[in-house]
Design a protein around this nucleic acid. Structure first.
Lengths: 206, 206
DNA sequence: GGCGGAATCACTGTTTCGGGTGATAACGAG
DNA sequence: CTCGTTATCACCCGAAACAGTGATTCCGCC
């Protein structure tokens, strides 16, 4: 049984989703809020497994509310709601802890599929934005473990040394350095030095 | 009128600087501390415009104390004190918010000049380390201005695109993209893509 | 109305990177 | 004792990056 709460400033959306879900045996309708304050008020004395949350709302928007909710109740899964593909906001919501995103005109099947997915801890993304963001998540969470040697060489690459220079510096063959470098690219799933260093700096690996 | 406080574990240094400053009309002697704890205690109920701070002290050293002080009282200017040119520590102190550095055997004139300089918000560096650190500051704060085109191409490089790919994407010749790329390397004073991207990410240019 | 910077394009090299493929030795875990 | 991983080294080859040099157009500024 999955308890669901919805936050959206459009009554018609609340009603629509409510009616879509009311006959689902394993989904319980916990309630609704039409703004961020009301939502936060609800969760003082109540809880839910999954929160469907509008991205754009008057006052505190979905991105902020998402951050606050995840801060207070990390166990609650948040699924973004929007009427169109707004890549930037989706990305921001995910960065602030949302587990996914669906379009408001999604089918009943997709809605239920998405609720189940995020409840189990998966990410769910609706429509064509899906693939791009799955990729984003991959690099976001599953950071491969680098060996000591790889970290050492990554550091030197970031400092601007070339393979031959690194080889001389740490007494290795430049072939070896090149091997490690290629392993770094493969492990981190990037295709060249530029994206390697960007990832490394952003993830504070160096 | 500039109020000055000093932190040093050597009484002779405190005395020496005190006597150098006692006849200065626009400088007020606020007091002294011989360790970090005592210094922090003083600033609970007092303040000062400029703090002369020894780099090496028993217990919490100048670098740490500097960080703590700047965290609590960002408006207080800190001037490092050391008996010799210890580049690494100076660099660290500056990174933690110090506004400069003088040698303990500086002349009275230099001491007063330095106090006035940091009080006005300038950096001050004593002796031959001066130049090196001014340089450090230059690359640290005075980031060259990039043109719109350069920023655009920098962004694309960071996303992992090659020159030919960028050229195709924004309808330019790959020669042109390469020109901009070389300008980026030259402007930012780096020698390859790795250090370019590292700098760009660390300085939040992308 | 010239001067400088930005933006564009062009050509020629050399060096480095990146893909693929494979080998050997050491070492720890099962 | 094998099996997987790490670390090492090796070679080929095409693509990309880097260095150097130079040219043209456009546009704002003094």
């Amino acid at each position: 049984m999955i308890s669901v709460f919805i936050v959206d400033d459009h009554p018609v959306v609340i009603e629509g989703i409510h009616s879509l879900l009311q006959n689902e045996k394993d989904i319980t309708w916990m309630g609704q809020a039409m703004n961020a304050q009301s939502c936060l008020g609800f969760f003082v004395n109540n809880t839910a497994d999954v929160v469907l949350m509008d991205i754009s709302m008057p006052g505190m928007d979905g991105v902020e509310l998402c951050a606050v909710m995840k801060e207070k109740y990390p166990g609650i899964m948040i699924l973004g709601l929007s009427t169109f593909n707004q890549g930037l906001y989706i990305k921001k919501m995910v960065e602030h802890g949302a587990s996914g995103y669906i379009l408001k005109n999604s089918s009943k099947e997709e809605l239920i599929k998405a609720i189940h997915a995020v409840h189990k801890g998966y990410m769910y993304f609706s429509g064509e934005v899906g693939m791009a963001l799955q990729e984003y998540q991959r690099t976001e969470k599953e950071l491969p473990v680098l060996t000591a040697r790889e970290k050492e060489i990554l550091e030197l690459i970031a400092q601007g040394y070339t393979n031959p220079q690194i080889a001389e510096k740490i007494f290795l063959s430049s072939f070896t350095v090149d091997s490690h470098r290629k392993n770094l690219l493969a492990k981190l799933g990037v295709k060249n030095t530029a994206s390697l260093i960007r990832l490394a700096v952003e993830k504070k690996m160096i």
